[in-house]
Design a protein around this nucleic acid. Sequence first.
DNA 1: TGTCCGATTGGT
DNA 2: CCAATCGGACAG
Length: 216
Amino acid sequence: MNGAGGSGQEYSRRKLPRGFYARGALALAPALLGKVLVHEAPEGRTSGMIVEVEAYCGPHDRAAHSFGGRPTQRTRAMFGPPGRAYIFFVYGMHYCFNVVAAGRGQPEAVLVRALEPLEGVALMARRRRLPVRTARDLVRLTNGPGKLTAALGINMDLYGADLTGDRLFLEEGRPVDRDEIVASPRIGVTYAGEWADRPWRFSLRDNPYVSVPPRT
DNA sequence: TGTCCGATTGGT
DNA sequence: CCAATCGGACAG
C-alpha cells in the first residue's frame, strides 16, 4: 500500500528524481499528467493531480517568455537547470506555475494549468475564499493556472524552488496511458501567430478538472 | 522614464 | 463582453 488521496484513488508518493525533468518541454509536458504537485506550507499541506499542462519551447516559440533567447530578471529561472519552479505574475493579480524543462541554457518550461485537488481541500478553499459544498465547487478550486497557484499558496517566494526539495515538489502519482492524453492548441496565446496553433496543450481525456475542454 | 499589455479570472 | 491591477519588457 502506498498513498491515498482525497478522491480515494491509490497513487505513488515517490518523489520524482531530478533526471525526470531533463528533457524537452514537449516530451516533459505529457509526462507530467497524472503526477501530483505538493506544497508543504507552514499552514499545511496541499496537493493535486496534474490534469492539464502546456509546453513552452525555447527561444523560437513566439508564445514563450523565453522568445528571443535573452534571459531577463523575470525569466531567468527558465534558462536555469531543469526541475525548478518558474513562476510569473500576470494581469496584476495572478501567479502561474511552470516546471523548468530541458537543460541549463535551454529555456523551456511546462505551464501547469489545472489540478484535481487531493490533500488539504479545506485549506485550498480558505485561500481561494470559496465554499466547497458540491463537486462543482471542488472543480472551481483548481481548474485554471491562476486558481491552482492561489489554492496551493504558490507565489514568488517559491521562484526557482528545486522541485526535488521538500517545500514544493512532484510525486509519481498514477500511470497515464498514451490514449488518455489529448493534445490541443495552447490557451490565451493568440498573439503568437502560427505558434498559437501548435497542439502543445496536453490534458487528460474527459477529466472534469481541465480548465477549458479541448475542441473535439 | 513612459507606455503598453499580458501563458487570467470573475462578474455583467 | 469587460474591468481589475501592476510588474516587466521595450521604446525613446
